[in-house]
């Protein structure tokens, strides 16, 4: 299992315990996310602070994880390291997800109204 999960202040924090979300990891990540978020709070915060590298396969897996949540739930991203931040901005995926520099930043704001 690459993920661990806790609930804090009405949100589910899912922590990625891996240094890379790359092509070799993408399918496992997507499956693990489905298992972790099958039910739970409407807001899920993905803690990426241990992830030092992501490629477009990993990016696609995060998009897939958001789709798996279904309508009425949201996936926010926290703790983006420089490479992860760069990949999200270059692909304009920073316009799709809410990005927070740290997990504290993410948990200190109320979830967006939908």
């Amino acid at each position: 299992m690459t993920l661990t999960s806790t609930d804090i202040e009405g949100a589910q924090i899912v922590t990625v315990n891996a240094e890379r979300i790359d092509a070799a990891m993408a399918i496992q990540f997507k499956d693990d996310m489905r298992a972790q978020t099958e039910d739970g709070p409407s807001r899920v915060i993905l803690d990426l602070s241990q992830v030092k590298f992501i490629d477009s396969s990993g990016l696609g897996a995060i998009v897939a994880a958001m789709k798996q949540l279904g309508s009425g739930r949201q996936l926010d991203l926290a703790g983006l390291t420089p490479v992860v931040d760069k990949v999200f901005r270059l692909t304009r995926m920073d316009t799709v997800f809410k990005l927070y520099a740290t997990l504290d930043d993410a948990t200190s704001v109320a979830p967006a109204q939908t």
Partner: peptide, 17 residues
């Protein structure tokens, strides 16, 4: 990327990067 979440692409970003 402007459509609903269901329609977001999950690939095709490689050559852009």
């Amino acid at each position: 990327l402007s459509g609903p979440i269901d329609t977001l692409p999950e690939g095709g970003f490689g050559w852009l990067l």
